[in-house]
Design a protein around this nucleic acid. Structure first.
Lengths: 231, 231
DNA sequence: CATATATAGACTGACCGTCAGTCATTTATT
DNA sequence: AATAAATGACTGACGGTCAGTCTATATATG
C-alpha cells in the first residue's frame, strides 16, 4: 500500500533524513540509496524532489543556517545592547563550540569532522558566511560608532570573523578526538580559544581583554567531563 | 616491447602526471584511468606503486610542499634579515598570489579552485600549515626579540598566518573569475589584500604600515592585464 | 446525486555509465 | 630460479535516468 504525501511534507522528510545521515555518516559516505531506504521511498522519488544529490545539499545547508540567521538578526536589531555584547551573542549563536552539548560533539567527531567530509563542512561554512556576515558587519559598524572598535575594514572583518570561527571549529574537535592519547590537548584547546579571542580583539581594534567569547570556568568543566569519558 | 623502469623513476612519473591532472581537472574529477593513460601504463601498475588514489594524493601534497619548505627554511636561517623582511619573503614563497603568472592562475581557476576540488586544496593547505608553520613561528619569535612584533601567541599566530593566506587564496581567484561581469572586483581584490596585510600586522602586533606583503604598482598592472584578457 | 472520465503529480525500480579497487597471470631483470 | 614490474579483465558501489504506474482530485455525463 503506497502512501502519498504533499510535496513540501515529503521534501522535508528527505531533508531531515539526509541531515541526520550527513551528520553521522558524512556527505560523500552517504549514498542516495541510504536516504531513500530510510525515508522508505524509491530512487525515482528522490530525483523527483531534487535534481541531484548536490542540489539536496544546497537546500539542506541553507535550511540549516536560516534558524541561526533569524537568531542573529534579532540580536543585531536590538538597541539595548552594545556591540561587544552582540558580538559575544553572535559567536554563541553560531555555536562553533557548544560547551553544553558533549554528546553531540562526540557523535559528530566521527563523521562530520572527518577529513573526507570537508565538502559538506565547506558548503556549510560558505553559506553561513555569505548569509551571516552582512549582519555581523552591522555589529562592527555599531562598535566603531560606539568607539569600542577601530578598523577600516568592517565588511572584510565580518567575513573574517566567521572564517576564523570555522577554522577554530575545525581545530577544537580534532584536539578533542586526540585527548585520549594527548591529555595536554586540554591546555592546547584553552590556548586556541584564548588566541581566538585575542585575535578577534586585535582585528576589530578592540581593547585587550574587552571581548569574552567563552566562559573560562565552563570550559574547564567541559574539558574535565570530556576527559572523564575516556577513562 | 614493454618498457621497464626503476621503482622511484616510475613512481615519479605517476606523481608528475597526477599533479598536472589534479591541477587542471581537479582531484575527484580525475579518474585513476586518466593518470594511467597519460603515463602509458595499466591499472595494476598504478596499484603496484600506490595502495589507493588517496595514498597518491598524500604523497603528492608532501612533494609539492617540500620545495617551498626548503626555500622558507633557507630564509629563516639567514641572520642578515630582520623578521619583517623574512615574513614578506615567506608570503612570496607560498605564492598565494602569483602576480607574475597570470596564465597559471587562469588555468587553475577552472578546476583547481572549483568548489568540488576542495578536498585537494584542503589537503594541500593542511600539509602546508603543518610543515611550514613551525618555521614561520621562528620568524615571529625573532620579531618579538627585535621588538617589532608583540604577541603572546607566536605558534598560534604562525598557523593562523597560513590559514588566512589560504582563505585569501580561495577568495582572490573567485573574484578574478567574476571580473568579466563585475569589474568592481578589481577594487575588491585590492581591499582584500589591504585587509590581509592590515590583519597580519594587527595579529602579530606590528606597527601599522610596517608590513608590505604585496607591491601596489605590480598589483595594478596585474589587474589591468587580467581585465584586458576579457575584452 | 451518483458514476464515468480525465488530468496532475507522487512514486516506482530496472537500467546505465563511471569509477576505485582486486587479482590471477605474464614479462623482464638479476 | 627468484624477484620485481606490468597487465587488463573483472567486481561492486554509486549517482543519475527514464518509461511507465498508481492515486487523489477535478470535471463531465446520465
Amino acid at each position: 500500500m503506497r502512501i502519498v504525501k504533499k510535496h513540501q511534507e515529503r521534501k522535508k522528510e528527505f531533508l531531515d533524513t539526509a541531515r541526520k545521515l550527513f551528520f553521522t555518516q558524512g556527505y560523500e559516505q552517504t549514498p542516495v540509496e541510504a536516504i531513500i531506504k530510510k525515508v522508505g521511498l524509491s530512487k525515482g522519488s528522490f530525483y523527483y524532489y531534487f535534481k541531484s544529490k548536490e542540489d539536496l545539499l544546497d537546500e539542506l545547508t541553507k535550511v540549516l543556517i536560516i534558524h541561526i540567521l533569524d537568531e542573529v538578526k534579532q540580536t543585531v536589531q536590538r538597541n539595548d545592547l552594545d556591540a561587544v555584547i552582540k558580538l559575544n551573542k553572535t559567536f554563541a549563536a553560531i555555536g562553533s563550540i557548544k560547551l553544553e552539548n558533549i554528546a553531540l560533539i562526540k557523535t559528530l567527531q566521527k563523521a562530520f569532522y572527518d577529513d573526507r567530509n570537508i565538502y559538506f563542512r565547506y558548503k556549510v561554512y560558505q553559506n553561513s558566511t555569505d548569509m551571516l556576515a552582512p549582519e555581523f558587519a552591522k555589529i562592527i559598524r555599531q562598535g566603531i560608532e560606539e568607539g569600542t572598535f577601530h578598523t577600516p575594514y568592517p565588511e572584510e572583518n565580518a567575513r573574517m570573523f566567521f572564517e576564523l570561527s570555522f577554522i577554530l571549529s575545525e581545530k577544537i574537535p580534532k584536539l578533542m578526538i586526540e585527548m585520549d592519547h594527548f591529555p595536554e590537548n586540554a591546555e592546547k584547546i584553552e590556548r586556541e580559544l584564548g588566541n581566538f579571542q585575542f585575535t578577534i580583539e586585535r582585528i576589530v581594534g578592540a581593547d585587550s581583554g574587552s571581548i569574552h567569547i567563552f566562559d573560562h570556568d565552563l570550559l574547564e568543566k567541559f574539558l574535565d567531563q570530556l576527559a572523564v569519558q575516556h577513562v
